[in-house]
Write a protein that binds this DNA or RNA. Structure first.
Length: 591
RNA sequence: GGGGCUGUAGCUCAGUUGGUUAGAGUGCCGGUCUGUCACACCGGAGGCCGCGGGUUCGAGUCCCGUCAGCCCCGCCA
């Protein structure tokens, strides 16, 4: 490894291999920066120590050529040392140079000068092998490797067994769209790629693998985001005879070890909020607690208001909630309008605001406010109130979005650099289109205190579920699971599944639960997000070797692609609109 | 499915109100150069202005459509 060499190696004769990173030809003297995974070492080529063939070979080299150099490690002359460079005290005096493989002039540069911008992301993905030669991406992937290794060692040490589960699985009726895989042997029938190993790991519990872990690849056919890829990696685990605190403690221990590897601070035990507290104080189920700004409920204070709009909202069960920003009055009208835009985008009809001033205040809300209201909100001169009124389902997401925006607008100081948080007791169900949906998935164990309300007030039932949140990013999600087949049937029927559907779709799970299933629970952590957030990288693409584009394409190899009619026929598949399926990705080198 | 931003030389970008022959840096090619390290200097090649249509005497520039990349909403049990 080139960059592990230093002055102590001076005088060593050896052979080095690597890529030509850059060439500086001074005429009589010529320098090559030789690169490998470890870094860069300067190779100097000159008539005093290089063969005529070596000189000639060096003159013909270009960026990214692969070479083998025979020579000797030497201390650089005092005045030619480069303190900016890890190997800047030494150089490699080449005797002979052998070109192992010529590189075409790279379409995107691997070398990046101090003021060079990165090439466009489309090109970086199209020529991913070149992009991956850059030190930054190499370090990201190496950190990822070390984090996975840390996790595997950690779980091995505390008695977990890694078990692989199938990639060809059964389609799931709820949740994300499945990637489907046609069966050749059974034309017209399909496997699905797993959205997670959820059911398999529960079945492993019934099989007696009481501590299971897997670095599992998962697939969801949904639209992408900067923090969402269609295939991703989870640290997936499940254990029998556990309480939530067991899982939380294990994960806190894991995160402390992984964070240490990445140079991130994580000091268990982590903060805990119930879901209800998180929604009340931050309007979000994954609040970023690097800032301590909280929402307030001023419904009581405004119950006597003359503002008809507030009166009618309060009268219909809505609440008046908002943020108080010390010194926020310095925000301009225009900046506040931008915050209103943020609130509207998050579903609020608007945002009421008031600036506190010596004259009594200004802004649309201020005209409805008397001294009692100012006292109740605690706002004084120079402060800003941002208020939303309505049902919690509207004000929470709106004010959460405003909270984030105003933190940026006012550049509020962080109270901590690394904010770890558990969010507990999520509702078991949510309601949409007049029916129930599982909030997390249908296997979450209801909170024992709420069990008696399951059938007549299901929306009030909490689950024994927990999310791990780091700096406002959801890193993991888990729960205790239902192990009683009767309870599981009840929950599936609440979700609208008939007895027949239940048997057809989940019969194998229910059968396993009826075979002597231990109480069990687990969690799944988003491996890609952990690496991304530990690095502070802007996108998951920076921590995945071969990511997909936002349109779920792999542009390096060019997937997906249309397939030949005959291949489809073998699978019993006919295309409805063959022309539509044939547009798009073209093979890269169609020879 | 919807909204937004971007697309000009291999790469990163500039290009005025629509007006002559579309520029810069870098890379590439050729040359000079013995201590460079973003080497320096001299010379050169390199353009379907993403693609298609429209408006106009005239379009890189305006309009419509489309493709690609990115960000967001929906979606992500």
């Amino acid at each position: 490894m080139l960059a592990t060499l230093d002055a102590s190696n001076a005088g060593d004769a050896c052979t080095l291999v690597g890529w030509v990173h850059r060439r500086r030809d001074l005429g009589g003297l010529l320098f090559l920066d030789l690169r490998d995974r470890s870094g860069i070492l300067q190779v100097s080529v000159g008539p005093a120590w290089s063969s005529a063939e070596g000189l000639a070979a060096a003159q013909g080299l270009g960026a990214e050529d692969v070479v083998r150099v025979r020579g000797e490690i030497a201390l650089r002359p005092e005045e030619a040392r480069n303190p900016e460079m890890a190997t800047g005290d030494i150089e490699f005096r080449a005797h002979d140079i052998e070109l192992l493989n010529r590189a075409a002039t790279p379409p995107i540069p691997v070398f990046r000068g101090p003021e060079d911008e990165l090439p466009g992301e489309d090109l970086r993905l199209r020529y991913r092998n070149l992009d991956l030669r850059r030190r930054e991406l190499q370090e990201n992937l190496i950190l990822r490797h070390r984090l996975i290794l840390t996790a595997r060692n950690y779980f091995d040490r505390i008695g977990f067994v890694e078990v692989e589960t199938p990639i060809l699985t059964k389609p799931t009726p709820e949740g994300a769209r499945d990637y489907l895989v046609p069966s050749r042997v059974h034309p017209g029938e399909f496997y699905a790629l797993p959205q997670s190993p959820q059911i398999y790991k529960q079945i492993l519990m019934t099989a007696g693998f009481d501590r299971y872990v897997q670095i599992a690849r998962c697939f969801r056919d949904e639209d992408l985001r900067a923090d969402r890829q269609p295939e991703f990696t989870q640290i997936d685990l499940e254990a029998s005879f556990v309480e939530p605190d067991d899982i939380l403690a294990w994960i806190e221990g894991l995160m402390a070890e992984m964070a240490a590897v990445a140079g991130v601070e994580a000091h268990p035990p982590f903060a805990r909020l119930t879901w209800a507290e998180a929604m009340e104080r931050y309007g979000s189920d994954r609040p970023d607690l690097r800032w301590d700004l909280e929402l307030h409920d001023w419904t009581a204070a405004f119950s006597d208001t003359d503002a008809e709009i507030l009166q009618s909202i309060i009268g219909s069960g809505g609440r008046v909630r908002g943020l108080r920003l010390a010194g926020g009055a310095r925000l301009s009208r225009r900046q506040i309008e931008e915050l209103e835009g943020v609130a509207r985008k998050a579903g609020a009809p608007g945002l009421l605001w008031a600036k506190g001033s010596a004259e009594g205040g200004s802004g649309p809300l201020a005209r409805w406010m008397g001294p009692g209201h100012w006292d109740a909100t605690g706002a004084g001169e120079g402060d800003l109130l941002l208020v939303a009124a309505g049902p919690d389902g509207m004000t929470s997401p709106a004010l959460s979005a405003v909270r984030g925006a105003v933190i940026r607008a006012l550049e509020l100081p962080k109270v901590r650099e690394h904010a770890w948080l558990w969010v507990l007791d999520f509702p078991l169900f949510e309601e949409a289109d007049g029916r129930l949906y599982a909030n997390h998935h249908p296997f979450v164990l209801p909170h024992p205190d709420d069990l008696d309300r399951l059938e007549f007030d299901p929306l009030s039932v909490r689950g024994l579920a927990y999310d791990l949140v780091y700096n406002g990013s959801e890193l993991g999600s888990g729960s205790l699971r239902v192990h009683d087949p009767a309870l599981q049937r009840t929950i599936l029927s609440l979700l609208g599944l008939s007895a027949e559907e239940t048997e057809q779709k989940f019969g194998f799970l229910l059968e396993a639960l009826a075979s002597g299933a231990p109480p069990h629970g687990g969690i799944a952590l988003g491996m890609d997000r952990i690496v991304k957030d530990f690095l502070g990288a802007p996108s998951l693409r920076d921590v995945i070797a071969f990511p997909k584009t936002t349109a779920a394409r792999a542009t390096f190899e060019g997937a997906p692609v249309p397939v030949a009619e005959g291949d489809l026929a073998d699978l019993g598949i006919g295309l409805r609109e063959p022309t539509g399926a044939l547009k798009g990705a073209e093979p890269r080198d169609p020879e």
